[in-house]
């Protein structure tokens, strides 16, 4: 067997293990999913109140509903929660056991992300399709190419958010406030990524720079790809994907460096 098939085999096995772990905690997974629905729905309610029966910058009631349904989906499929786990593992020393395994600990986190995100996708995508079929208002004007681009953007966005989350988690090697630092970052992400409002709701030209940070490219961009809002300006599509690729490369490199420095710093608690 060559190395690649061996590697993929390991991943398949990990996936099986993590999938059964997730199924054992399926009620928790559902609670997490439902809890995460609330925030976008609040923003939706506020925008619906503000727009009333009119429309703002091309967004009427229907557009807002579609936009925030998109946010719900993208948020669930790209969010990273590795900080909590890493923080606990490193603080309590259980990270040592993971380091001893003949497989880099990051692969466990990657599989966990894949497992939960496939679970969410399996629930949410069919649910949206049924809803769209029952209430035609709720189905976006998507075609094959926009769905394809959307999927690509989701993968890129998950990678960016996973790498960022993992780096914040590794901060636990140095400080015990990794989670609160991450929460501040998340708050900035909430404001600048398009989770509380479509980009065109912001003052003109205010957030163009947010495309270059790991914000708009991770949430607003995929959502607007799906709703077809970007089909008139292909340069934004190219820019969005470029931004994702550049960030994945830079974060990947930074993570490597941080990992090496962190391991030197790590002294397991309790052995």
């Amino acid at each position: 067997m060559n190395r690649l098939t061996l590697f993929l085999n390991k991943y398949a096995r990990l996936f099986q293990v993590e999938w059964s772990v997730m199924l054992a905690y399926r009620s928790e997974s559902l609670i997490w999913m439902v809890g995460a629905f609330v925030q976008p729905l609040i923003s939706l309610a506020v925008w619906l109140t503000i727009s009333g029966t009119g429309s703002i910058n091309g967004y009427g009631a229907r557009e807002y509903i579609l936009y925030f349904l998109g946010v719900l989906l993208v948020e669930r499929l790209t969010r990273s929660w590795d900080v909590w786990e890493l923080d606990q593992d490193i603080r309590e020393g259980t990270f040592s056991a993971k380091l001893l395994r003949p497989f880099h600990p990051i692969h466990w986190s990657v599989t966990q992300n894949l497992v939960y995100k496939s679970f969410f996708a399996l629930l949410m995508v069919p649910a949206w399709l049924v809803l769209g079929w029952l209430f035609p208002v709720l189905s976006p004007a998507a075609n094959l190419s926009s769905v394809l681009l959307f999927t690509l953007a989701i993968i890129g966005s998950s990678a960016v958010r996973f790498l960022t989350g993992y780096m914040f988690g590794l901060l636990a090697f140095w400080t015990n406030r990794a989670i609160s630092i991450f929460l501040i970052y998340e708050m900035a992400h909430l404001l600048l990524s398009g989770r509380i409002a479509p980009l065109s709701m912001y003052p003109d030209g205010w957030l163009e720079w947010s495309l270059w940070l790991p914000f708009y490219a991770t949430v607003g961009f995929p959502v607007e790809l799906l709703s077809g809002r970007l089909s008139d300006n292909p340069q934004w599509i190219v820019l969005g994907f470029c931004s994702q690729i550049v960030w994945i490369a830079m974060l990947g490199l930074a993570l490597r460096l941080q990992w090496r420095a962190g391991l030197k710093k790590y002294g397991a608690v309790g052995g």
Partner: peptide
């Protein structure tokens, strides 16, 4: 956790919701 998620609705006056 669920309570805290739903409690976020309190950030806005209740007249926002329909």
């Amino acid at each position: 956790y669920l309570f805290m998620s739903f409690f976020d609705t309190a950030r806005f006056p209740v007249s926002v919701y329909k």
